[in-house]
Design a protein around this nucleic acid. Structure first.
Lengths: 342, 342
DNA sequence: TACCGCATACAAAACGTTTTGGAAGGAGCG
DNA sequence: CGCTCCTTCCAAAACGTTTTGTATGCGGTA
């Protein structure tokens, strides 16, 4: 069965192609009688007709294609969640997603965007693998564009990022609520918004609780398991060691668990731990389970595309942009307990 | 600057659209003089002209679009690697990838495939998140189709999967080479090709070394950290416990590490460990690092699209299919040592 | 000189839709 | 009865390309 086109339907239904188009479209239904409309629809489904979107896209100047350009899809396991959220939102509204990954190659990203544009995408999501200021590739902006896990300092594009400060506040409050007062913080040594934001959140939560900030309890380490290890060695080696530690992310907490075990410290009785990411394999895999604040990747991906489609379809007022911060819910497992008495 | 079309170039270069098309195309160059050809090309790049692929796709019956339908993109962190390999291979040859994820909903997958087909994709990759027999959605096969991390028992489609037996042999040989003779195996309890294949590989490697198969050393557990824990408890609790354990995957090895630590067993001195997946965050995060056989997701994704394009472009003989098995290289870290003397 | 072939350029058709502008016919009204 | 107004349908143009068929002019050959 070769491809069936609108002409085939017209022939089979013994009407003109115009009538077929009107019968099948939602818009101009009034131009065809209910009977023929029904008849045409039956014939169409019988033949298995589905309009060629290349042709309709050409005619309507609307491809129902969205581009998703990202710096690194593969490097983090969260990518899947972001992409999935984006894809779901797109599909639900009748769009399809085209994906390119530049592997942090800037020139390549430009070319990939050009390729997307050649395919007449109706809009573009520019995604970054961790919260950062976006270098938006040239040519974006020729179609509606939304930033995902990135922001534009000039505010020319809508964007969505996690609320780092709130996430850190949530994490630290969890420890405060359990009664801890000496709370260490293993931060990320990289100079990125997440590091600054989480430090601010850490300080705010402490200050809310009337606890003075002690720079000696904060250490900046590589964002990896090894960084967690060295941070833990420093913090847990102190004479007056903290009774709880807040980690920049789950990988660092992983390293912290290892060092704690080596030192004979039991989690959570001797040491409470909270971190950010809620990366299942680690947080669920560690024993006891790691209490962690989730970065809402799925939700952000979904929001980005939803916003993009609103801009494309003119639902959103023209030219207006929205800078969205997403809340980060905490997922409690077994790594927090009150400090040892005394 | 509104979109610039071929007419604009023609006008600016003071030639006909035909000439522009010929000048820019590789095919019919002989129909235009070298001078005009050069002139047209200059004007085109000056104006920033790039042909509308919707239009050319309509005319040429070739969209330069590929569909990638998958059951679960987000559930495993490897997805990124497969998708990236596929995307790279596609982009390098001038194609773009459209992505859909069904979340294991078969009806949805059918509909998504239909949507892809409406967009006139030139071919489809059907990807599965772990090696399995594929339920190919209806409608695939109307365009060239390749299976990724899945196989078709009838052989009507080309496919690529990891060589499970070889992977297990490689892993177990690593332990044998270190001198181990009592080697436990924590297998996956699910009845899937990977479990059967890896068991076969385990037995082959033992038999090569002249070691009798001991069913008591093999346990089938849930494919998760918790499964690794319970398997470890069983294996390491034995009177004559194994000196080395081969795990189905890194997550199980993660659980094994935890139990070994609780029992006071040092890795690798008291216990050697090898597994499969080479999932960086775990294998690199564990201490000591976990020696693991890598599943070549990137390479398989790349192969699938390369093969698909060969079929589309007629490079591959018509109707012929290829069932590909990919080799799995071992990545050595610190979890293997000779057994304790005595 | 008359003819042919070649190099170069262009007009027009086609790809599969959607939509505009009528046309044909019947009903309602004065 | 004649006019207008609906209803229902259709022909044709348009979207931006690519490609086929053809026209023009020129040099070379008989």
């Amino acid at each position: 069965m070769g491809k069936v086109g609108i002409r085939d339907v017209a022939k089979a239904a013994e009407v003109s192609v115009t009538t077929v188009s009107h019968a099948l479209s939602e818009a101009n239904q009034h131009r065809v009688s209910p009977e023929t409309r029904e008849h045409v629809r039956e014939v169409a489904t019988t033949l298995g007709y589905a309009p060629n979107r290349l042709a309709s896209g050409l005619r309507n100047q609307r491809s129902y294609l969205l581009g998703l350009v990202s710096d690194e899809i593969a490097s983090t396991p969260f990518a899947g969640e972001m992409i999935l959220g984006a894809q779901d939102a797109a599909y639900e509204r009748g769009w399809l997603l085209m994906l390119v990954d530049s592997g942090r190659n800037w020139d390549l990203e430009q070319k990939q965007l050009a390729a997307l544009l050649q395919h007449q995408v109706d809009g573009v999501v520019v995604a970054r693998m961790y919260h950062q200021e976006a270098r938006v590739p040239e040519g974006a902006g020729r179609v509606p564009t939304v930033l995902l896990d990135a922001f534009d300092p000039e505010g020319s594009f809508s964007s969505v990022v996690p609320d780092e400060e709130a996430a850190a506040r949530t994490a630290v409050r969890e420890l405060l609520a359990a009664g801890h007062t000496r709370i260490g913080f293993i931060n990320n040594a990289d100079d990125i918004p997440a590091a600054a934001g989480r430090l601010a959140g850490y300080r705010e939560a402490l200050s809310e609780a009337g606890i003075a900030y002690d720079a000696g309890l904060v250490t900046r380490e590589a964002p990896a398991v090894s960084g967690g290890r060295s941070g833990a060695q420093r913090l847990l080696g102190m004479a007056d060691r903290p009774t709880a530690v807040f980690c920049f992310h789950d990988r660092q907490a992983f390293g912290l668990y290892e060092v704690a075990a080596q030192l004979g410290l039991t989690i959570p009785d001797d040491l409470s731990v909270v971190s950010i990411d809620n990366f299942e394999i680690i947080a669920d895999g560690l024993w006891p389970g790691l209490t962690s604040v989730a970065l809402p990747h799925y939700g952000m991906g979904r929001w980005a595309v939803t916003r993009l489609l609103d801009e494309i379809e003119g639902v959103a007022p023209d030219g207006e942009t929205v800078q969205m911060r997403f809340d980060c819910p905490i997922v409690r497992r077994g790594s927090v307990a009150p400090p040892r008495a005394g």
